[in-house]
Amino acid sequence: MLSLAVTLGWAGEATATDEGADPAALIGGDSRCPLPFAVWQRLVPLVPGDLLRERLTAAAEPGGSAPGSARPIQILDLGPSFLVIAGHRIREYPEPARDCAERARFAALFIAIATGADPARNDAAAVPPANTPVVSVVAAPVMSERQPRLRLDVGATAAAALDGSKAAIPPGLAVRLAFPMGRLVPVVALGVVGPSDSSTRGVDLRQWQGTVDLDLRSGVRSMGRLRAYSEIGAVLEVLADRSTNLSAASSQLSYAVGPRLAVAAFIATNGSLSPFLLLYGAWFPFAPERFALPAGDLGRAAPWTVGVTGGVSWGLR
């Protein structure tokens, strides 16, 4: 949002006077050949001033700017080639001669086309030669901010059940399905953790924990390539307990429900797979009571669970 506001602010300044518009505010990138200013000089004649501002503003709409940048246009010098990013559109031009003026012309033309202008109307000479090889044309941004229809997270989990005694940290697996539909994303998840060994009043216990949780995931916040979000929801845990040192042991299933909070981050990548890390905690206020003879009351199962899940998030479009 901040990025959008800043970008729109810059666009507004450009409206006041085309001559006074700061190209550095609209065209970014570290390119030395062509220089962003040179591209700007070529671009202004191609598109009327107010139209250019309008279209660059449109390019700065959410999902329209290059990730991690406040500028709607990015020029990147790749040595024997250069890359132009205009909103959703990206084009790489091979240009080993490093003719910076020519590069500026091609870049300006591409930006004009990408923002919807008709370059033939103003500067037909700017049309790149027909034989100019296009290395890549990408309709979508390299790192798309478009939300996938479905996000599948699969990961390994380590969880600690906190009941005041020495905490075991058993391993486990987690599968999480997110259904992006707006700012809040419904999530359903399954997990299994165990076995966890503990001892209470001389009774040794082995426990497996299965969980089903329903959560709402917040909107993603960008921090460079890092995307962070939080989740709040409810979790149902199913505990399978068995004593390992009772002469007559019985396996028992029990249930508990409680609130769950999580914070997570994933790294945006060019592909649909992204590594993620999720930290979570759950509270079970009515954790099941345990009993064995002759020890008697063994106390409640752990009311707190904290854990970490790391794995791969797959965005399905």
Partner: peptide, 9 residues
């Protein structure tokens, strides 16, 4: 949950 017993008799 009743986890069992170490009572032999």
């Amino acid at each position: 949950m009743d986890l069992g017993s170490n009572v032999l008799w």
